[in-house]
Design a binder for these strands. Structure first.
Lengths: 113, 113
DNA sequence: ATAATTGATCGTAATATTACGATATAATTG
DNA sequence: CAATTATATCGTAATATTACGATCAATTAT
């Protein structure tokens, strides 16, 4: 974030920004969609699906994991990644609240219309 | 984006990622909230509101403008910034579609529960 | 016309992200 | 046990973002 200024903003603003950052890369969007559609959600499968290096995908997975959006459970030599559904609903709420807050505004209220 | 790989992803994935990137900084979240709540939405007011340099805020405003999320109309020496409501609804739809796509999945479908 | 105000743009430093190959770790197979 | 497979982590280069001061362009006020 350049020289970091997170302290200037509310926890809620920082939280939304963090969640948005999770979706702010097409590879992570693709990963989430793939996990949503697939029963066999393992890292290896993703490497074939997206054409990115294994280490790159692992890195993206870690980021999603840190934000709690996905969970990984060890299954022998491989890892089963899947969406964390409860957390996901929470995130959806967060975005929805933001969007509602914004679109509450009636067109007539705006200064430049 | 490091070495850019946008060509690997669908237009839809890239579009969502771009929109998410717009929200991926607390200053921009704050700007959008402020514009939503305020009738007097001018750049100068924002500089007092957020404590960031004028040039920094201008930069954030340009980013939001490029994505069509806000519009600026010149009003004498100053500029009136406001949300682009129609575009905003479009964006909301975009996110909503994504969230619905994700949460269509029933818990039982997942491999690691 | 000059000065003051407003906002955009430029240049640049600090920092963060993205991507990859190489290597490490852990489980599985032969 | 050695080889293989699956994933994580490290190191690092390329690129992008964030932030600021300085400056420019336009408008308004004196």
């Amino acid at each position: 974030m350049g020289r970091s200024k997170t302290a200037l903003f509310t926890p809620s603003q920082n939280e939304l920004a963090d969640l948005a950052r999770a979706l702010a890369h097409p590879a992570r969007v693709a990963i989430l969609q793939y996990l949503a559609n697939s029963q066999s959600c393992i890292n290896g499968t993703l490497v074939q699906e997206l054409s990115l290096a294994q280490s790159t995908i692992s890195q993206h997975l870690q980021e999603l994991k840190e934000l709690g959006l996905i969970r990984g459970t060890i299954d022998g030599a491989s890892v089963n990644y899947c969406l964390d559904i409860p957390r996901w609903r929470e995130v959806q709420q967060y975005f929805q609240a933001f969007f509602e807050q914004i679109s509450e505004i009636k067109t007539g209220d705006l200064c430049c219309d």
